[in-house]
């Protein structure tokens, strides 16, 4: 019998290491599983937030550019019309058309013969652009209402954009059927 065997068989051998009882182990496992689930949720939430942050930043930039362009175009407009798309008629015969596409807005510059000579696209989950002419003041105003898609992530509330018109009166053209 070697030394190790003799030690193992000795009835007086006790380890001083404090071990877990079954109850301790069950409690620890329950605590760990709750915490790990919590960590998974927080991690998923943080990943979604990171993705939302990038999207929100991009949307904010795109919206800023669209609003600036829309104000600029409408200030120079002499006529407006629109059902499927918003058309702003410019004084030199050209037209600017804003068309809402799936998850983007397209601005087309059309010459006097309605040929497209320029195009710009903003990636925005816009549903439609409504407008209303306000003639209550000294000069007319156009009130645009930008309606965003209800299932856009992150959700965007409707936005009103007001633009004054540089001409004394704006012609509201009959809508093309």
């Amino acid at each position: 019998m070697n030394k190790r065997d003799s030690l193992r068989k000795s009835p007086t051998v006790y380890s001083l290491r404090s071990g877990f009882g079954l109850l301790d182990m069950a409690a620890v496992l329950a605590g760990m599983s709750i915490l790990i689930s919590l960590c998974a949720i927080v991690l998923q939430w943080s990943m979604k937030t990171q993705s939302d942050t990038l999207t929100a930043f991009q949307l904010s930039q795109q919206l800023q550019m669209l609003v600036e362009q829309l104000r600029m175009d409408s200030q120079r407009a002499i006529g407006i019309q629109g059902i499927d798309s918003l058309v702003l008629v410019q004084d030199h015969g050209s037209q600017i058309e804003y068309r809402v596409l799936k998850s983007s807005v397209q601005r087309s510059l059309l010459d006097g013969n309605e040929r497209e000579i320029g195009k710009q696209v903003w990636l925005l989950p816009l549903e439609r652009i409504d407008y209303e002419l306000d003639r209550s003041g000294q000069f007319p105003l156009i009130r645009f209402q930008l309606q965003f898609s209800s299932n856009s992530q992150p959700a965007i509330l409707p936005l009103e954009i007001v633009s004054r018109i540089s001409v004394d009166s704006l012609e509201e053209l009959p809508n093309a059927q």
Binding site: R71, G137, Q138, F139, L141, E160, I161, V162, R164
Partner: peptide, 15 residues
């Protein structure tokens, strides 16, 4: 910012 610009546009239409 957008709203302040709206107010600017509306004020510009006032005498």
């Amino acid at each position: 910012d957008f709203w302040l610009e709206n107010v600017r546009e509306e004020l510009a239409c006032q005498p």
